[in-house]
Simulated assay, not measured.
Amino acid sequence: METDEATAVARARGGDLDAYEDLVVRFTAPAHRAAVLLGAGADADDVVQEAFVKAYRGLGRYRGDSGFKAWLLAIVANETRNLIRSRTRRTGLLMRAAVREDPLPLEPDPADTAEATERRRFLVEQLRALDARDREVLVCRYLLDLSEAETAVTLGVAKGTVKSRTARALTKLRNRLPVGEVRRA
């Protein structure tokens, strides 16, 4: 945990709202991205807001074993799961953030861009087809770029479980991809 982060957490525990605001500013983007990628979709803002409220209320229970980010993302993951469970219908919003089409400063070849976009869409489609446990571990490890330890905290499982789920999920994903796509994707 960074010194600035540890200091902000300690000050926030003492009731310093400015310190907690610093944490909110620092971790809103990763929390929002996690919520979207884990399935909150258009409700990601609500999930993130609720997660920050719960994190503030739970600061006394935060032990600091993992970084604040991992602890917060665990709350985001739980809030997202709660949202998904409460929905009456499943939506296909899980991976919108992963299929962004940001304009690049230098215009690439349109054919290359179209091919890359199509490969990303196909990969996201195959990722969506995996069961929730496989999808969650791959989202955390590869789309949110969390370490195994951070993923374990985020998903509320042991680090060994993260390793085994990741290996199994990658195998399942590879089996869904055509041979040529495995290397390019």
Rank of each mutant, 00 (worst) to 15 (best):
T88A: 11
R96P: 00
A51C: 05
A31E: 09
N78M: 07
L104W: 01
K172I: 00
V124T: 14
L143Y: 04
E136S: 12
M95R: 10
V124K: 06
I84Y: 01
G15M: 10
A44M: 06
A98V: 07
D46T: 03
L177Q: 11
D131S: 05
V25G: 01
R165K: 09
R120L: 14
E125V: 02
V36M: 09
A55E: 08
T154S: 13
L17Q: 15
A35Y: 03
A31V: 06
E118C: 03
V76A: 04
D65R: 08
A8Y: 05
A44V: 04
D4F: 07
P110L: 10
D134T: 02
G14V: 09
V53G: 03
A51M: 06
R90Q: 15
P105E: 12
R90M: 12
Y142E: 07
L177I: 12
N78C: 05
L155Y: 00
L170W: 00
D102K: 07
L93G: 08
E2D: 15
S66L: 02
L130K: 03
K163E: 11
A29G: 08
D134I: 01
N82K: 14
D102H: 09
G156D: 08
E148V: 10
G92V: 12
L59P: 07
L59A: 12
V162R: 01
R168I: 09
R81F: 03
R87Y: 08
E50M: 05
S66D: 09
D145K: 06
N82Y: 04
G14E: 15
D102T: 10
R57M: 09
A149V: 06
T91K: 09
C140Y: 02
G58S: 15
L104F: 04
D16A: 10
A55P: 08
L144Q: 09
P110N: 11
P30C: 07
D109P: 04
R133C: 01
L123E: 10
N175Q: 15
D134A: 15
S66K: 00
V137Y: 00
R90A: 15
